[in-house]
């Protein structure tokens, strides 16, 4: 459902991607792990059709992301950017309506439930905490019926209890709807618990890939964090 082949991308003189290849199948949650500036966000942006690669190509739902046809395929894609913040003067409910309106769906009940905002959903967003805002955006996007989810730090700023809830929802979403999910995170525990396969990425290239179990075994590590550090040291 998601396939990237030798993606290359430059911003001026900076080579953000130097040949990233990855794939995610139906019902699979794939982790994207790497240090700051490794190329995770650029990869997700190319997969979302926001950037055009300088080299290589990406396909989502069988359509190249740099082709005009991808516009129609985007109906089935939901991308949660890392830094996005909902509009202060809307209520949570109005924001969900706005996002659902872009996709042409109405699924308020499920979105409100998933957001965990309860009656606060009718308050203005400027009264929300950072975590509540993140939950709101995640809930709005997870309820548009997408077949492909691109999630960039979905639990950033969210408290432990609600982070667990979001992870559970993502995992369940992928299995029950057969959606392909790319899950970018700095939180290794999160990646280990949610992802079926994990890509280690550094300085614009994939350093290693495998299931969490395979990676732990390969690097003789007790957790994914240790495996990641060893993988990067080995590649550097």
């Amino acid at each position: 459902m998601i396939r990237a082949v030798q993606l290359q991308k430059k911003f001026g003189k900076v080579e953000a991607l130097r040949g990233v290849s990855l794939q995610a199948a139906e019902g699979e949650v794939v982790g994207l792990v790497g240090p700051n500036g490794a190329g995770k966000t650029t990869t997700l942006r190319i997969l979302a059709g926001l950037l055009k690669p300088d080299g290589g190509y990406a396909e989502v739902l069988g359509v190249r992301t740099d082709s005009p046809e991808f516009r129609r395929a985007k109906r089935w894609l939901a991308y949660l950017p890392e830094e996005v913040m909902p509009y202060d003067n809307l209520t949570g409910r109005a924001f969900i309506e706005f996002v659902h309106g872009l996709y042409g769906v109405v699924n308020m009940k499920e979105a409100v439930e998933l957001s965990g905002l309860g009656p606060r959903v009718d308050d203005k967003i400027k009264t929300y905490s950072k975590g509540m805002r993140r939950r709101l955006v995640a809930a709005a996007l997870l309820t548009v019926g997408a077949k492909v989810l691109l999630l960039d730090e979905p639990t950033s700023g969210v408290d432990v209890l609600h982070a667990v809830e979001i992870r559970r929802a993502v995992k369940e979403y992928a299995k029950s709807r057969g959606a392909a999910v790319i899950y970018s995170s700095h939180n290794m525990l999160e990646v280990q618990s949610v992802c079926d396969r994990v890509y280690f990425i550094d300085r614009g290239v994939v350093v290693d890939v495998g299931t969490p179990g395979e990676l732990l075994q390969r690097y003789d590590a007790t957790d994914l964090e240790e495996a990641f550090v060893k993988a990067l040291k080995g590649s550097g």
Binding site: A48, G49, R71, K74, A78, P86, L141
Partner: peptide
Amino acid sequence: TFELILSTP
């Protein structure tokens, strides 16, 4: 929010 909006239809 440009990223969010432009990744939708």
